[in-house]
């Protein structure tokens, strides 16, 4: 089974996010990037599938942020091929914009299974995984927690959560796109010496795209940090005074008798 995994870069929330001079976008020069968490699970799931049978794992990523670090780590973990898709824009890829070049690269690879993280914290205009499925004309199932390959090689069995504490096992005909919430086990740790070795030995397949970016249905007019709530009351004074005030407040709200 040939599996393709999409790995996205998202702003690292360790740094405070800042809005740029336009007032409608993040200041990316002040941001650092990490791999999207659920994409990391998608990679782990792909590696587990590969290790449970035969197959290859191909990582596909837009050339954005600190993607090289992410790709070398993926190679060190066991990805067989790394495809880096050109991204000439300065702004971060939105799901609609990213779907076109990624789908074009996937079409060339013609994988049996495409694994994508089910969401990313910077998705503004939709969710990438179903957008890719639509462009590729493939079935899509999301919110997946675990994938097993079937013996026939033509289907996979996925675990999907539904509201109301319902868990379903679905048999999915391949090829298909899956939105991964979590892999069967947490993403593996790979020692840095392996990443360093991968930096020396890994060659990225760099591809451009002909079709241009996907059109977005939205335009951001203004971006701002959430306004501070006006109703917060900052308690000041000595510890005893603050404690006294907290006790009074709890009593006022009927929480103390």
């Amino acid at each position: 089974m040939n599996i393709a995994v999409i790995l996205r870069q998202v702003p690292d929330l360790i740094e405070p996010l800042e809005v740029d001079a336009s007032g409608a976008a993040l200041d990316l020069s002040a941001a650092t990037f990490v791999v999207n968490e659920t994409d990391d699970h998608a990679l782990e799931q792909a590696l587990l599938l590969k290790e449970s049978g035969r197959g290859t794992v191909t990582v596909v990523a837009l050339d954005f942020g600190e993607v090289d670090n992410t790709l070398y780590t993926a190679a060190a973990k066991g990805a067989d091929r790394i495809v880096k898709v050109a991204w000439e824009q300065t702004q971060a890829p939105s799901p609609h914009a990213a779907a076109a070049p990624l789908a074009e690269a996937l079409r060339t690879l013609a994988p049996d299974l495409v694994l994508v993280g089910v969401q990313a914290h910077d998705e503004l205009d939709g969710v990438l995984a179903p957008l890719l499925a639509t462009r590729l004309g493939l079935p899509y199932v999301g919110v997946i927690r675990g994938v097993k390959a079937a013996a026939d090689g033509r289907t996979v069995v996925v675990c999907k959560e539904f509201p109301g504490a319902v868990m379903a096992r679905l048999t999915v005909r391949l090829p298909a796109v899956l939105g991964i919430l979590g892999a069967d086990q947490p993403p593996r740790y790979v020692p840095v010496s392996r990443i360093r070795a991968a930096m020396k030995s890994t060659r990225f397949e760099e591809v451009s795209h002909a079709a241009g970016l996907g059109p977005s249905g939205i335009a951001v007019t203004r971006m701002a940090p959430p306004p501070a709530g006006a109703r917060a009351e900052m308690l000041t004074g000595s510890e005893a005074e603050v404690a006294q005030r907290i006790t009074e407040l709890l009593a006022e709200k009927g929480l103390l008798k």
Binding site: P191, V192, S193, R194, I195, R196
Partner: peptide, 9 residues
């Protein structure tokens, strides 16, 4: 802890 690659980095 045996993370020699990290130490060397």
């Amino acid at each position: 802890f045996g993370e020699e690659g990290l130490f060397e980095t």
